[in-house]
Amino acid sequence: MRGAKKRRLYLVLAIGLCLSAAVGLSLAAFSSTLTFFFSPREVVAKHPAPGMSFRLGGIVQVGTVQTVVNAGTPVTNFRLTDGQASIPVVYSGLLPDLFREGQGIVAIGAMNASGQFVASEVLAKHGSSYMPKDVEQSLKNAGKWNPAYGPPPPASEWNTMQVKGSAS
């Protein structure tokens, strides 16, 4: 009786090992197609053909956002960067509320002949740091963080920080 149980145990463990190996290998093989977006660096390296639709993700480069209202629709020009390469993007339409300089975004569209990414949709990718407005303000005032230039300092510096006049 104990032998049967032991056999079942080893059988289950062996099947589990094989299965996880199979899934792990296939995930590694397909990791490029599982990628939700390409970074500017990858786009510069791979040169996607103009007109081929893909998703481009990166940070809105500071000082590059220009919006012109053209016949009632705002047309926005900006550059997306990952710190190593930057791609000019044009988008006509209303941008999400979280769109700002230094914000991570994902744009869906295609390159045009002149090397500009024409976006048909812009999604905002928000950071993973959560803090009340007054904590952000006091970090900013102390010169420790500017949201336009990247993520906040290590969390241990602020996640229990005392803030004067904090609402809660």
């Binding site: 995930l27 990791s31 599982l34 990628t35 939700f36 977006f37 390409f38 970074s39 993700g57 994902v106 999604l123 990718k125 928000h126 950071g127 993973s128 740091s129 959560y130 803090m131 009340p132 904590v135 906040p152 290590p154 969390a155 241990s156 602020w158 996640n159 229990t160 920080m161």
Partner: peptide, 20 residues
């Protein structure tokens, strides 16, 4: 492992969590 639109982890069991 992949580029996602979903945010990364806020809560960390090994370091400090990025939440006030």
């Amino acid at each position: 492992w992949w580029n996602t639109l979903h945010q990364g982890n806020t809560i960390s069991f090994t370091g400090s969590s990025r939440i006030y």
